[in-house]
Design a protein around this nucleic acid. Sequence first.
DNA 1: TCAAAAACTTGAACTACTTCAAGAAATACA
DNA 2: TGTATTTCTTGAAGTAGTTCAAGTTTTTGA
Lengths: 190, 190
Amino acid sequence: MHNELVSHIKKFIPLDSSEVAILESRLSISTIKRKDHVLQEGQICNTMYFVVKGCMRQYIINPKGTEQTLQFGVENWWITDYLSYHNQTPSHFYIQAVETTEVIALEKSVLESLLDEIPKLEKYFRIVAQKAFGAAQMRIKFLFTMSAEERYHHFNNQQPDFVQRVPQYMLASYLDFSAEFMSKIRAGKV
Amino acid sequence: MHNELVSHIKKFIPLDSSEVAILESRLSISTIKRKDHVLQEGQICNTMYFVVKGCMRQYIINPKGTEQTLQFGVENWWITDYLSYHNQTPSHFYIQAVETTEVIALEKSVLESLLDEIPKLEKYFRIVAQKAFGAAQMRIKFLFTMSAEERYHHFNNQQPDFVQRVPQYMLASYLDFSAEFMSKIRAGKV
DNA sequence: TCAAAAACTTGAACTACTTCAAGAAATACA
DNA sequence: TGTATTTCTTGAAGTAGTTCAAGTTTTTGA
């Protein structure tokens, strides 16, 4: 029995047993407690996080001092700041555990040596990044074309269980409206 | 002297002369006339476009019938619908030349055989996709935290020449406000 | 188990933007 | 070069959302 990341990789590329062995030897699960951060604004991001169980989020603090969630990462998602990671520049984001979460933290140096040893992994990370970019484009489309109420109902239809899982105010900011307005949408007062 | 895409790839990974030769034999430049489309909503996207010279854009038509630009692609950018491309599902987007544009159109079947022959290219496309995703995250951050006027001035500071290059109404929709409002911002009437 | 902290609700006042309509200016290309 | 087309401007009226403040409910963890 091997770890969840290996299973995820195998959905995209075949791995032989020696490659699995290399991966297993380098990857370990760590637990991030609810509300703990793995990245703070201003830090350089040197790690990619694969969510095994639980939920992480990437957020900012806006000029009014309110948190706004840009991205959630649940089971089988990667979360990181790719811009800070690639350019070695200070991050604009916080990355935090929404609930106590198990992740595989993959440091840049470890990832780079894995990519050298198992070049096939490049394909895996390419596909993951291209799909994530595609999802980001759809997200922008929804933000552009739907009203706040439509965005709420749409999300609620697509991910009914997830809505139960995170605080309302985090989801409101992810959908780009205020927590108060979300409360009114749910009460049917709009 | 070889093509612009080969030069771009060499910024990220080394290529030997036989690899360059393979690439050159498979890649050719085509010209897309101003306002012509390379992808329409509902079509399956089977091609990635690398912009050699000119400007492409990805847009949608919103429920009110207005075009909204999600993405511009200028020199050395890739533009495609990765979600349609990977899942072979109908695209939600239009991709069009803003000005007459030279592109390298890379079809899925050609790209896949290139990736088999030159596996190093996986790294190039991985890095390109990760950077594009990072840029999309920053874009969402700006949309979330800045007022319309701030978004305009910020963009204008970052890309002063680009603002001259595209019709105002396209840029307005990209920045997520109306063309009329942009006109007022520019006139200082807000 | 229970006190403290976090999350949610409500209504009233406000505002950053949109929409509409019509005319003026700029640009493309026959 | 001239004219059709595209793009930009302006003001007035409207609205989808925000903000604030205070109270209520739910959840957390010692």
